[in-house]
């Protein structure tokens, strides 16, 4: 229909529109509004919201990964007091050699300014057991691999040639040269030293007096870690999301 022709038509006014037609029009308007409103309501509870609207932070959802269990850790960062009981417990439990460079977990600190006053901030770090682990991809001999049962990034020491590419590839400085094993070593969420013996927590998580570290299976909806990661209105972040490694260690202030 052309505008010129329409302009020639006489305006019928609204009086001539039947009630049925008015109802149909209103129904259509409500349907359109409903679709948009419904969509935005749904998106409020979607994983995108749980992920803090950041595509870099991937809180795993059911069926996304093939592991039987999906071990992860939450760091409630603001609770950390830098007592380093986690570091000591890790060293003892996992028999870490007494070398400067050798540690599986550490606490980083920095000074920040909040409301005009200086504040010391602590951040516990360890291997992030990434879902897309750069260390695993680069290893020439599959000496480091993602355990299909637990999702933990593990080492097969006899296969390690010591090329140190995994150390260069790791965004988290989580790997070190173990001079006793003469291979690269790393955190394994205490799989051999505690989980294999039926314990449910890593040594660092169990030793923490402030309950900073919450360890658990993300596939089990009854776990504390699942609850924490699905609390509404909680800001969750990961370290170096830009690398696309999809880490399994999540940070929050709670």
């Amino acid at each position: 229909m052309k505008i010129e022709e329409l302009e020639k038509e006489i305006n019928e006014g609204t009086e001539s529109i039947s009630i049925e037609e008015r109802r149909k029009f209103l129904q259509m308007g409500l349907a359109v509004t409903g679709i948009f409103l419904g969509g935005s309501v749904l998106s409020l509870t979607s994983i995108a919201q749980a992920n803090q609207n950041s595509p870099d932070i991937n809180i795993p959802i059911e069926g996304q990964y093939p592991y039987t269990k999906h071990y992860s850790m939450v760091m409630r960062q603001n609770r950390c007091i830098d007592c380093e009981k986690c570091v000591v417990a890790c060293k003892q439990t996992n028999h870490i050699p007494d070398a400067h460079d050798a540690y599986r977990t550490a606490i980083q600190e920095r000074l920040t300014t909040e409301n005009g006053s200086e504040r010391r901030e602590f951040r516990p770090v360890l291997c992030n057991h990434c879902n897309r682990p750069p260390c695993v991809r680069v290893c020439p001999t599959k000496a480091t691999y993602k355990d299909p049962e637990t999702g933990i990034v593990l080492m097969d020491y006899v296969k390690c040639i010591g090329c140190k590419t995994c150390m260069a590839a790791c965004p988290y400085n989580a790997r070190y040269f173990n001079e006793e094993k003469y291979a690269i070593d790393k955190c394994n969420f205490c799989l051999d030293t505690r989980l294999a013996a039926g314990k449910t927590e890593t040594a660092c998580a169990a030793a923490c007096p402030a309950r900073v570290r919450i360890f658990g299976d993300l596939k089990d909806k009854s776990t504390e870690i699942y609850r924490l990661l699905h609390m509404p209105d909680t800001k969750i972040w990961v370290l170096r999301p830009d690398t696309g490694a999809l880490p399994n260690v999540f940070y929050m202030n709670a």
Partner: peptide, 15 residues
């Protein structure tokens, strides 16, 4: 660190 392992596992366990 361990080139002998490289010779072996480059063949037995290639990535």
């Amino acid at each position: 660190a361990s080139p002998h392992r490289m010779l072996l596992y480059n063949i037995l366990s290639p990535n």
